[in-house]
Design a protein around this nucleic acid. Structure first.
Lengths: 190, 190
DNA sequence: GTCTATAGCACGATAGAC
DNA sequence: GTCTATCGTGCTATAGAC
């Protein structure tokens, strides 16, 4: 073959990374195959030697984005001093920087509705990674329910803040969520 | 004119109601003007005597949906015995019935990401109605921050639950959020 | 594997008859 | 106000050259 298997894997990775960011910024269904490929310097037709359809790309994006979110937010929480670590993660998650940069942030607030409308295999995949994140937080907190509640709080806060027009009110939303989450993380539960 | 002003207003209302449901089910950008009009028994061309563009329809849908959410969730909370009333509203919001029927439910979890990506006027409008809801809850609870936190919790819980594939886990998410919200509503704060 | 070209279709929006 | 017909464009996906 004129192109190495390495090259194909690299192209695929570039495509997933770039397309993920574009999807998080403007929505996946609003993005065209041609635009996604041009964004990594390739033509639209070349797409189909990497994925059989646009839907399969979405599935791959969801897997990559959510596994990456688990790395950033969950894996580190399993270590000792886990409560303090988790608290730091959540403060970053619930920040104006995250609100203002959806393309480099968590996929759940931006792509959540599209994941919810996707076929069962995509939702099963989402469930897998989201559950692993919840489990990681639960083991840090010793409480499965609070782990779910914190996850919903964070996703909801980002989604709500991004719908608003005024930075001051966005900050109020984040501050309210940070305060609640802080209390929940600090609270000893048995 | 061959058609009364009443008829136009009724058609517009039907269009807003029907299109809102379709948008909440499948996403607004995924819906075509032709399909939206056919859903109320009219042809696609007739759309443009009601709205100058598809974007203006989205704006009108957001206004109608969010003002309706305020009626259902907020206005009733301003009465006395407000805490108990609010608690009942939130239990309905955080129910499997709501998770399973996005088209008749709240627009924030389903259309939130599209609102967040919309032009400033749409976000200003969203901010207006969301803030009124938060204010209504704040006056019932005597705490502005907790009102924001509860709002984020509810929106996040529905979005997260809908991304999942397994009903049992969806129920766990709802149960965890209901429990947290119940504690927050019950807690006296000064 | 990537390109250009294109099929085939759906979209948003407009024009003109009624 | 609603219809049919249509323009122009964009889309997903395929075909064939390199």
């Amino acid at each position: 073959m004129r192109y190495s298997a390495d090259h194909k894997a690299q192209t695929r990775e570039k495509l997933l990374c770039s397309s993920g960011a574009i999807a998080k910024r403007g929505g996946f269904s609003a993005a065209g195959v041609d635009g996604l490929m041009k964004a990594i310097g390739l033509s639209g037709g070349a797409f189909y030697s990497h994925f059989p359809s646009k839907g399969e790309l979405f599935s791959a994006i969801v897997e990559r984005e959510l596994s990456q979110s688990l790395e950033r937010l969950g894996e580190s929480a399993e270590a000792q001093t886990s409560r303090a670590r988790l608290q730091r993660c959540l403060d970053i998650y619930l920040s104006m920087a995250h609100v203002e940069h959806p393309d480099s942030g968590c996929a759940l607030p931006t792509l959540g509705a599209e994941i919810a409308r996707a076929e069962l295999p995509v939702r099963e995949q989402a469930e897998h990674w989201i559950s692993r994140l919840q489990q990681a937080w639960a083991s840090a907190l010793g409480d499965e329910q609070q782990a779910w509640a914190i996850l919903c709080q964070c996703v909801g806060a980002l989604l709500v803040a991004r719908m608003l027009a005024t930075p001051q009110i966005q900050q109020q939303v984040l501050e309210a969520s940070r305060q609640l989450v802080t209390e929940l993380v600090a609270a000893e539960r048995d």
